[in-house]
Design a protein around this nucleic acid. Sequence first.
RNA 1: GGUGAGGUGGCAGAGUGGUCGAAUGCGCUGCCUUGGAAAGGCAGUGUACGUUUAUGCGUACCGUGGGUUCGAAUCCCGCCCUCACCGCCA
Length: 427
Amino acid sequence: MLDIKFIRENLDVVKMAAQKKKIVVDLDRLVSLDDKRRELMSSLEKKRAQQNKASGEIAQAGSDEERQAMIAQMSELKTILQAEEEKFKPLMEEWKALMLQVPQVPDMTVPDGDSDEDNQEVKVWGEQTKFDFEPKDHVEIMTNLGMADFERGTKVHGFRGYYLTGDGARLCWAIWNYANTFFGAKDFVPLLGPSIVRKSNLFGTGHLPNEAEDVYHTQDEDYLIGTSEISTMGYYSDEVLDKAQLPIKYLAFSPCYRREAGSHGKDTKGLVRVHEFFKVEQVVLCEASHEESVQHHEWLNRNTEEFIESLGIPYHTVLNCGGDLGQGQVKKYDIELWVPLEKKYREISSASYFHDFQTRRFNTRYKDEDGKLRYAHSLNCTAIPTPRILVSLIENFQQADGSVRIPEVLQGYMGGRSVIEVMKETE
RNA sequence: GGUGAGGUGGCAGAGUGGUCGAAUGCGCUGCCUUGGAAAGGCAGUGUACGUUUAUGCGUACCGUGGGUUCGAAUCCCGCCCUCACCGCCA
């Protein structure tokens, strides 16, 4: 959500923003609606003022006749008022719907482009893994090692269903525990929140109204979160914080549900794209300053880079182009890990900042030194998604004999083992 | 799921049709008092939008959305939530 005043005063900027993000929204229509809104509102307010004034006079009227005369007069005004209110209602509905479509203005440094193909590589880390044997993909490796069961996953869940079994499950626990330690050392407060939430929270983060297709909801019209960003951002909705509390840094963990409605043909195999997964997420609320946002944004992204580096997986970082930005995002980095079998980098993390786009919708404010209320700034960045991370981890660390090397930092969480190999499971 | 009670300003808590944006107490801010503090005294203390800027003025907001009325915190209806007890349950 942008401030309507800002939109009016910077119409060209907002139009360019929409263009850059490939978002279609009729901003001229919005402004002309807003003209009408202002006009009608002022007219309504004048009439209400008149009504309020008369209301006091009626109460103190001397005689009954006087009173009746005034009531008759006000009755007329009421009819006019009601007619105007009837006009006002649909106008406001359209106005609000349009306001929800207006995109946040992207940062100057965001490159032009239509899709993720136009994202700009800003960093490369590690060597693209070379094998002196014929490498396998993660589906085959995991199945061979008893780490995953996709057939039964499909049997029980359906399309994109999976089980993690034995060492596959252990490896997930190891990653979660390691992430908890790693990010825990960076001054985050751990947060476990609801993954079933009210609809309003998805409007708050900007997932609604434009991504409705990709969201699950229940028969009670509650919604399943696609990221813990949603419930974490909802935490302080309609609240006023003390400036001294900022910045607030949460390390949230939750299951995530995505319908993947627009991607039926894509990534149909394995753990790349699933309906249900788990994610550790970094979320920050800071004061309303562009510089603070930028600083935290770089920091968040760097945290995840460091985490990936500690695992030893080759990656690159891209700066997302305009067309690959979400409606509310000012700027975004994606971290993509090397997937040897596909010979390309695959997204694993996304770091974005929003300025006050989300906090306006959530009505999350803080009191400044001068006593003024301001909307906080919000940011978020993936810490680690499971099981998607396993795709790269397993394919990069596979060995000629079909076993998988366990990154050193995870070994302590895997009973001190350094390799996953075929072994008899007792369960 | 059932029954009952209730949702008012930072908090507590009055207010059942007009002079109520809302008593009172607490808290908070400023001033007086003091060597300094406490106590005491005085004054002030919500948010958003519009208008005007030296102040100011107008509108809206008493969980939420409708309705009745010249006029609603107050009456009527729907919804949400909280609390208590019962039932069920990881």
